[in-house]
Nucleic acid binder design. Sequence first.
RNA 1: GCGGGUGUAGCUCAGUUGGUUAGAGCGCCAGAUUGUGAUUCUGGAAGUCGCCGGUUCAAUCCCGGUCACUCGCCCCA
Length: 429
Amino acid sequence: MAKLQPGPKLQPVRGTHDILGDKARAFRFIQGVFQDVAIRFGHQEISTPIFEFTEVFKRTLGETSDVVSKEMYTFEDRGGEFLTLRPEYTAGIARAFISNGLQQSLPCKFYGFGPMFRYERPQKGRMRQFHQMDVEILGVPEPQADIEVLAIAATLLTELKLIDDVTLEINSLGDTESRNDYRDALVTYFEAHKDQLSEDSLARLTKNPMRILDSKDEGDRALVENAPRISAYYNDPTKAFFDEVISGLDALDIKYVINERLVRGLDYYCHTAFEFITTKLGAQGTVLAGGRYDGLMELMGGPPTAGIGWAAGMERMAELVSPDLVLNEPRPIALIPVGPDCQSEALKIAQQLRIAGHAVHMSYKGNMKKRMKRANNANANEAVIIGEDELARGMATIKNLNDGKQQEIALDKILNYLDQYLSLEVKKR
RNA sequence: GCGGGUGUAGCUCAGUUGGUUAGAGCGCCAGAUUGUGAUUCUGGAAGUCGCCGGUUCAAUCCCGGUCACUCGCCCCA
């Protein structure tokens, strides 16, 4: 680690990272594809504040959820308000929906992305500040919205070339009636085997019994094998809803696995729940996950409004995405003035090239050797060398940094020459 | 909140069964080449061996603590 001076702590706060270099490029690439896909599906961008009144999250996520009970970054501001850095996107969007009176303009199709904050012990694929991309459809109670939202996810993962790295697991948590019936049955079952449950699952039994289903404890797993299955408790509407979602996936040729033990931690989910999972990221295999939350708006005090959406972890995606896909930045042109008298001419040419759309690296100081070296480090394609001799003749030297060949070009032909030459280079590839 | 692993140069890592000057590769700087990078050759700078304490004639190495990073549990994207 770098040597730290005495004084303020100079390392980043635990669980936070600086995003630069390849990681920044990967983020920008992923974000770009995401926005493009979301817009093609007719979604509007929404950007909500990264903090909200604490109540917004407390009410919607449920007091007993881990997020609320131990993971929120909450603070009191100078006005005495309790604020919380958003631990997830959906609650903020739901609040924005109500604040802006958007029930007048249903359905609402949103996309957004940005940082989220959870006070957790960091590990692979899990940070205290992390970034999510988020998609929501509000006001569509029909399964078509579920299908569409899944189609967005599948399209995104396909265009990021990640679709073969992930498995879509899907389940229905049922409507309120089905879900409550099932929960009761589960509790009855596990109560009868209380003595065999792990300590963690014993706590889940009162807090969130459905969580026991995806326990990693071996003893629990054996019990879960014989536990009642959720599909046995689906009523007719639930069954019809889920069937329609599934046939939509079939129609779109989106591959999935039905996992009856897939549950959600947060209280407001119903019907469809899904996760795109990979085995390539260690313990945190979920790359993109979401579900339907028809009860959320009322929970928050708004008009009853159906909702479905998902969130994807950008750090996790960035780990998976191939560097070849990301490395598509145009190579710059390096401008190298030789001697102080050539500085202003070089500056003018650089500006001309930049206005014409080229990426230009202008060197600031150093002898020619050093400037050439910097040009090389910047991965420049061409170096435009402006020297006093050439300048006197109205010429500049253009050197191809790939093959080392160089030639003189008239100053007023530089743009023209580079436009032609570089477009040929692109065609060659 | 609970458990495991790791901390040596800007980066990736060797190493010392405790003993004088701490090692490599990459990177950086300079020169070979005062108007030419990438390749080659030569030279150089750079480390309180995470921090504090203990044991010892002597600690980067052993012991204790602490901080940081990392992996896992809980939970989640």
